[in-house]
């Protein structure tokens, strides 16, 4: 069970004041939340690296959290920023299986989480761009494989990845 929003906000505010105990709990909870947040949006063997990247970013940018505001939308903005950054860098040619296990946490349908989810971010892309990114950057297909599976030409797959990532980067804070 992952701590609720209010608890996380309190832990973060205490962490900003230098409370190491609160910080350790917060990082642990944030790690669990991020694991769930990224599931099925990144190749499983890269998931932990990305979660750790975000935890380091959380640490370095902890002063940018406004303790009068909710914690999760702030963490989600950092998580999205790092995710788009990761997709830009990651270029995997080998096929990788995506974890198809459904999230076990009951709060998955929670309205707040839905607003800040990666799925909601991807919904802002035209289907062709979302497909190209999904196939190449998340599932790890080669351009040729993605072209065959999506019915787009190879050059169109590349263009759609480029345009899609650019658009995602501009929509990091978008909730709707």
């Amino acid at each position: 069970m992952i701590a609720d929003e209010q608890t996380l906000s309190r832990l973060m505010a205490a962490s900003q004041r230098g409370d190491k105990r609160a910080y350790s709990v917060l990082l642990d909870e944030a790690g669990k939340w991020l694991t769930r947040y990224y599931r099925r949006r990144i190749a499983p063997d890269q998931l932990d690296d990305l979660v750790q990247d975000v935890l380091v970013s959380l640490h370095r940018k902890r002063a940018s959290y406004d303790p009068t505001r909710p914690f999760l939308p702030w963490l989600a903005a950092i998580a999205r920023y790092r995710w788009v950054d990761h997709l830009r860098r990651a270029y995997r040619n080998q096929e990788q299986a995506i974890d198809t296990e459904e999230p076990s946490e009951p709060g998955d349908q929670d309205a707040v989480l839905a607003r800040i989810s990666l799925e909601r971010l991807m919904e802002n892309l035209p289907p062709a761009q979302a497909d190209a990114i999904e196939l190449v950057k998340i599932e790890g297909c080669s351009i040729r494989e993605a072209s065959e599976r999506s019915g787009q030409s190879e050059s169109l797959v590349k263009v759609n990845i480029h345009r899609g990532l650019k658009k995602l980067a501009a929509l990091i804070e978008k909730a709707e």
């Binding site: 900003q16 230098g18 190491k20 002063a63």
Partner: peptide, 25 residues
């Protein structure tokens, strides 16, 4: 081993924690 790696990172970050002035517009 992944869990251990993450726990180690959390320990290091916790050890490195210093108070910061919270964001205020």
């Amino acid at each position: 081993s992944r869990e251990q790696g993450r726990n180690r990172l959390i320990d290091e970050l916790t050890e490195d924690l210093t108070p910061v002035r919270a964001f205020n517009p």
